[in-house]
């Protein structure tokens, strides 16, 4: 049974695309046939993060308008077997996405993949709505600061009311919270909300916490999903996230300030 998973947040710049790329790569690495779809028409980024920007010929909008077949637009990832990407169009805007077109493409992708990951644009307008509308599950990415948390709260409300599942009165979209750019030092100083604060406000199952990490920027610049950087804290945190997402259990890591000293080095992760 294939699943459509939207990665969304409301606010921009919190790490949606990084997360979509990392989770898609992680799922594929676990043997799940996975496609990741960039819904950010006009502000295409996912191809960069996945390092396939030079191989884009056709895009999402071309397929919707019938200029290309779905298979011509899908790009297979060279590093991870079973991972494909459907890039967004850079020259168009969100109005180029039609309700029926999106529905048709997602249905077609469902046939061939175990997971269809939709990388939502920021905001709550048309693009974000279309990315979330067909979702079975949602990963809501938030940063530990009030404006991001409030936007996530808003998005969670929309997931509960304006998705296909909500409109058809089906079982609601399964919601997961992913807290990214988490910095325990700043949390300790009171400059950032803690995991507990955020969970208290959002009341959603916590899928994982990704620490603020230089590795994310490095990976993104290199065009590689950070999950493939297995030595990095962020890469390991995303690997934990994928395991949890597939039903496995992993303790949450990178929540406490890393202490200097032998014990800190041994147990601090």
């Amino acid at each position: 049974m294939s699943k459509i998973v939207v990665v969304t947040s409301g606010k921009g710049g919190v790490g949606k695309t990084t997360t979509a790329a990392a989770i898609a790569a992680g799922l594929a690495r676990e043997g799940q046939r996975t496609v990741v779809v960039d819904f950010d028409v006009g502000l295409r980024n996912l191809d960069l993060v996945l390092g396939c920007e030079r191989r884009v010929v056709y895009d999402f909008v071309n397929v919707i308008q019938g200029d290309a077949r779905l298979h011509q637009a899908l790009i297979k990832d060279k590093r991870v077997d079973g991972l494909a990407i459907l890039p967004a169009s850079q020259t168009r805007d969100k109005d180029a996405l039609t309700d029926e077109g999106v529905a048709q493409i997602l249905d077609a992708l469902r046939e061939e993949f175990d997971y269809v990951i939709c990388d939502s644009p920021a905001g709550i307008e048309r693009g974000a709505h279309l990315a979330s509308y067909h979702a079975d599950e949602a990963i809501v990415v938030a940063n530990p600061e009030v404006s991001s948390v409030r936007d996530s709260d808003r998005v969670l409300g929309l997931l509960a009311s304006r998705t296909r599942r909500a409109e058809l009165n089906e079982e609601p979209v399964k919601e997961h919270l992913l807290l990214s750019r988490y910095d325990p030092v700043r949390v300790e100083k009171g400059e950032m909300l803690s995991v507990d604060d955020v969970q208290e406000i959002l009341a959603v199952d916590l899928l994982g916490v990704i620490p603020e990490s230089q590795a994310v920027l490095n990976a993104s610049n290199a065009g590689m999903p950070v999950i493939l950087d297995e030595d990095s804290d962020a890469g390991q945190a995303y690997a934990d996230v994928v395991t949890r997402f597939l039903g496995g259990e992993r303790p949450h890591r990178f929540l406490a300030v890393e202490r200097k000293g032998i014990f800190g080095r041994m147990f601090g992760g």
Partner: peptide
């Protein structure tokens, strides 16, 4: 029974 979210 569910939380009332921002914007609702």
């Amino acid at each position: 029974e569910s939380p009332v979210r921002s914007g609702q």
